[in-house]
Amino acid sequence: MQQLIFFLQRYKYFLCFILLQIIALFLTINNHSFHRSKFISSANSISGNFYTKKNSISSYLDLRSENNSLIEENQLLKNKISLLEQQIDQVDSQTKIDSIANQQYKYVDGKIIKNEFHKPYNFLTINRGKKHGVTSEMAVVNHKGIIGVTDFSSENYSRVRSILNRDSKINAKLKNTTYFGSLSWDGKDLNTVQLADIPRQATINVGDTIVTGGNSTIFPKGIPIGIVEKNSKAMIQVKLFNEMNRLENIYTIINFDKQEIKDLENANNE
């Protein structure tokens, strides 16, 4: 007994140090695994509030360029509307226009309050959470293209796993074809991501557009990603449409049919 007390007395600092290190290491490893609740993340009320305050100041500095991008988006949407109006005119008797009851996707607007792009595993924080209907595994996009997937939500904030994260895997395809592959990032350049597993018979040219494939329940089909920059045998380098270091306004996409699709797929497996 005395020996034990002597031992504790002698190594008390070292034991305390080891204990703290184990906690830290546990948090680090926990941060790298999927689908766990995370205590240390920027999507909680303390850090979320600080980042909101900081963002409200710094967003003033970008107002001009943000305005420009909003005008750009408006223009794009107006063009689409006029195109659709024309279509409705033409084929009114044949097509049934989806009513609200059949709507599959809902877009929730929001803002990035913390952006990150210099690490191998990047996470963003947005100011939308469970209160606004945003939960985990939802697509985050802006008018130029995809940004990431939410992975953890609190009441008012959500953490987003950026596409610039080595753990991210996104289903993507060549526009106007049915060939699809998976998109990931090698951690080197923040403007290029890598597309792999495209079938060999697909002809890929530099400058081809890559869009989301719609094979997952997260992203709707046809959201722009980027253009092919370099085409080597194993990997296709894709240049992103988004400048990942200059993001501000985003949309989160809620898929109403997600549960139904998942249930169906699970039922099929059994």
Binding site: A24, L25, L27, I40, S42, S47
Partner: peptide, 12 residues
Amino acid sequence: DLFSDSGGIHTF
């Protein structure tokens, strides 16, 4: 760590 989403890296 709490602010930079890095798990326990800085703590360690």
